[in-house]
């Protein structure tokens, strides 16, 4: 199961026939296993990993560190769920360390993002502070190199 997930994470468009070949089993089994992973919610969706710098459209991505006061009943969950509910939020993780929630947001420009943070995120009850970091360049995403392909130094032919 674990290897199957690893292969799908690398390439979600890989065919069942190919997966069966790689994992030394048959297509029916693969089909069943994927269906089970989807049904149980282990697989939440499939998405393309893109180099957005090559897309002709303006956008800005920011990582926002949120410090929050956990609520007496629900702890961090309620705030995290409220943050995640916004379409602008791409990811929202609870972290150990100096801050609590790591939030990724994408907008068209810096003004969009600052407005969103000031008006929406900062105003959520329990949010104590925000620190915003804008992304300058992405080199690797989801285990896939985006910029600066590694060169095979082994040469062409060796015994």
């Amino acid at each position: 199961m674990y290897t199957l997930l690893k292969l799908l994470k690398k390439n979600a468009r890989i065919s069942n026939a190919e997966l069966a070949l790689l994992l030394d089993t048959d297509e029916k089994t693969i089909e069943k296993e994927i269906a089970a992973l989807e049904a149980s919610g282990v697989i939440r969706g499939y998405s393309a990993i893109t180099n957005d710098d090559m897309i002709d459209e303006d956008f800005v991505t920011a990582h926002v560190e949120l410090k929050v006061t956990p609520r007496s009943q629900s702890g961090f969950d309620e705030i995290a769920i409220a943050v995640s509910a916004y379409d602008e939020v791409e990811s929202c993780w609870l972290m150990s360390g100096a801050y609590d929630l790591a939030v990724t947001i994408t907008g068209r420009n810096i003004r969009d993002i600052s407005q969103f943070i000031a008006q929406r995120l900062a105003s959520i009850d329990g949010v104590l502070s925000t620190a915003t970091h804008f992304v300058l360049k992405r080199y690797k995403d989801n285990s896939i190199v985006i910029s600066g392909e590694e060169i095979d130094e082994r040469g062409f032919v060796s015994p």
């Binding site: 095979d152 082994r154 040469g155 062409f156 032919v157 060796s158 015994p159």
Partner: peptide
């Protein structure tokens, strides 16, 4: 015999290899 072949591949642009033994 591998060496000779290496020289051919070396002088071409855009070669992808399935030739290495490491």
């Amino acid at each position: 015999g591998i060496r000779k072949f290496f020289d051919i591949a070396q002088n071409l642009e855009g070669v992808i290899s399935l030739g290495v033994g490491e």
